[in-house]
Computed example of a mutant assay.
Amino acid sequence: MKFSIAFSFMSAGLVAAVPSANQIRSVNDVLPNLKRDASGAGFAHLGSDNVVRTFDKNFNVVDFAKLDDRSAAAKDPSADVLAEAKLAKSKAVEQTSKPRKITPLDARQEKSCPSQSCPDDSYCKGLSIYGYDCSTCYSVTHTVGNCQA
């Protein structure tokens, strides 16, 4: 009798530990376990079908994971989900900052000590490792000044 009661409590505990069929996982739970594009040029996308997929740079699926059991997800996305991924990728590339081209005026600008703010002389002398020829801090207030050659 004692054994059957203990067994029923243990089995009830095991049932509670098993996730329910409709449990929803977050992207943060799924994403670290997905394989990535080895070249580093790929990206991850959460589709409208509640599936997180990692793509390579040519939009081939590297890995995928469903966020819930209700979605009937296949490794390969539908045409609509693939269009979503392509649109998201193009928006991300569009919003990524690009390096500014160097103009002839940039080459003429020289490093100037007076343009550097400083709290004390040691700060100005430390700028020499960056190519400045600064030696003293001309104090404007007790904590802020300008470096001088």
Rank of each mutant, 00 (worst) to 15 (best):
C118K: 02
K35T: 11
E110A: 15
P99S: 11
E110Y: 10
R70E: 06
A17V: 14
I102Q: 11
Q109K: 14
Y132A: 00
T54H: 05
R70H: 10
A83G: 03
G145P: 00
N22D: 05
L14T: 03
S48A: 05
S26I: 10
A85R: 04
A88S: 12
V27F: 07
T143G: 10
E110R: 15
N146A: 10
S90M: 11
F59H: 01
S39P: 04
S48Q: 06
P104D: 01
S4P: 09
T136V: 10
I129E: 06
C118D: 03
L34E: 00
V62I: 08
E110W: 11
T143A: 09
Q148W: 09
N33Q: 11
A79D: 12
S78P: 03
L105F: 12
K91V: 12
S128G: 10
S115L: 06
F9W: 09
S11P: 03
S139K: 15
T54P: 03
L14Q: 06
S122K: 15
V51G: 02
T141V: 07
I102S: 13
M10S: 08
A107H: 14
A16V: 15
D76V: 05
D133W: 13
A41C: 13
A12I: 08
F59N: 00
A21W: 04
D29K: 08
Y130F: 14
V15P: 01
H142D: 15
F43G: 01
K57H: 08
K2Q: 14
L67P: 01
D121G: 01
V144R: 15
L34K: 05
A38D: 09
S26T: 13
V18Y: 12
H45N: 05
S122G: 07
A72H: 08
V93D: 15
R36F: 05
F7A: 14
Q148D: 07
F59K: 00
S117N: 12
D29L: 08
A6S: 09
K111S: 10
Y138N: 13
H45S: 04
L46S: 04
A16Q: 14
V51E: 02
L34A: 01
D80F: 05
A88K: 13
K89H: 10
L87S: 12
A74E: 12
C147M: 03
S139M: 14
H142A: 15
A38G: 06
N146I: 14
M10W: 08
F7S: 12
F7R: 11
P114L: 09
N28I: 09
D29C: 08
E110D: 13
G40T: 01
R36I: 09
A6K: 07
N28D: 13
R108Q: 11
G40N: 02
N146H: 15
C124W: 08
A83V: 07
V51H: 02
G131I: 05
V93R: 10
D76Q: 06
A107K: 15
C137V: 03
Y130R: 13
R53S: 03
D80N: 08
A21K: 04
L34P: 01
P32W: 04
V81Y: 09
S115R: 14
N50S: 13
S48Y: 02
A44F: 03
S78V: 05
N33W: 00
A85Y: 01
T136M: 09
